[in-house]
């Protein structure tokens, strides 16, 4: 790869930048990429480009009269200045607040938000004192999100990691396409929760709607209340001691441990009678991992 300075990159188009950095399709086609790397070279816990933030450095931001883009840009600017705790006020149902934050941060949202709240998150700890709309935490990679009230449908759609917690009830299709991580619901969840779930864990302390875990490939769903019906290829499994210990730890951590413990939870897993993985080409299988 040719050496290119940042100044030179800045003056290039995206296509030129990609080519200058050796990112053409042809060069990425090889099965293996050899990267020299020393695991003990430097102790880092955040991405190399991530701003250094201090949780004890706190600031407030009023969303009133601002667009989503303005608020989200302000969050990035404040992080660049080292603020590690940011409190947002008056969100009033705004969509896409706090999306795409890829480093450590304490984000507190005082109030309720709209669709796609804190989606594409990778690292932050978020607390929302109100309610959230559809697709909260979608595609989350890591971090924690705690919602004090209710959440809309497709809660935690396609999350890959981290803990997404709603103290109240959530809408339908919770954790649709979940690929990892943990979703915890203090109340009830609607129909088709865990639809096409691939891995990860979902915990519903209340009741679950119809077709729970429909077409799930893998992963585990725990339900404390009633299940209206199981979806296609979702089956009940035995709750193991390891499951109980894990449930107890997680629910206690988020203050959602039921008074009667966790023994009453129903565990739902994939029956794996619908699996079609063996029809996939090896490269496609890798994409699913």
């Amino acid at each position: 790869m040719a050496s290119v300075s940042d100044a030179e990159l800045k003056n290039m188009t995206q296509d030129e930048r990609a080519r200058a950095l050796g990112m053409t399709t042809e060069q990425l086609t090889g099965k293996q990429l050899y990267v020299e790397f020393d695991p003990d070279a430097e102790e880092r816990f955040t991405y190399p480009w991530a701003p250094e933030v201090d949780f004890n450095k706190r600031t407030e931001l009023d969303c009133d009269g601002k667009t989503t883009t303005e608020v989200n840009s302000s969050i990035r600017d404040l992080m660049a200045k080292g603020y590690g705790t940011i409190v947002l006020h008056n969100p009033r149902g705004m969509h896409s607040l706090g999306v795409g934050i890829l480093s450590k941060l304490n984000l507190i949202i005082e109030g309720s938000t709209g669709y796609f709240t804190v989606g594409l998150l990778d690292g932050p700890n978020v607390r929302i004192t109100g309610r959230v709309g559809w697709s909260c935490g979608e595609n989350m990679m890591s971090g924690t999100i705690m919602i004090e009230k209710n959440a809309g449908s497709t809660f935690g759609a396609a999350i890959r990691g981290g803990d997404l917690v709603c103290r109240g009830s959530v809408g339908s299709r919770t954790g649709i396409d979940q690929k990892g991580g943990t979703i915890i619901v203090g109340g009830d969840t609607g129909a088709l929760s865990g639809f096409m779930m691939q891995r990860g864990r979902m915990v519903v302390c209340g009741n679950a709607g119809k077709n729970l875990g429909d077409s799930m490939y893998d992963g585990t769903i725990f339900v404390g209340g009633d299940i209206k019906s199981l979806g296609v290829d979702a089956v009940e499994a035995e709750l193991s001691d390891l499951d109980k210990a894990w449930l107890t730890r997680k629910l206690t951590q988020y203050g959602l441990m039921p008074d009667k413990g966790v023994d009453h939870f129903t565990k739902v897993v994939a029956g794996k009678q619908l699996w079609n993985y063996d029809n996939l080409e090896p490269s496609e299988k890798k994409l699913i991992l």
Binding site: N106, G123, N125, S142, G143, T144, G161, G162, D163
Partner: peptide, 11 residues
């Protein structure tokens, strides 16, 4: 990171 457990690394 301010986490009480391994978070995403559990997977």
């Amino acid at each position: 990171m301010g986490w009480d457990d391994l978070n995403w690394l559990e997977d």
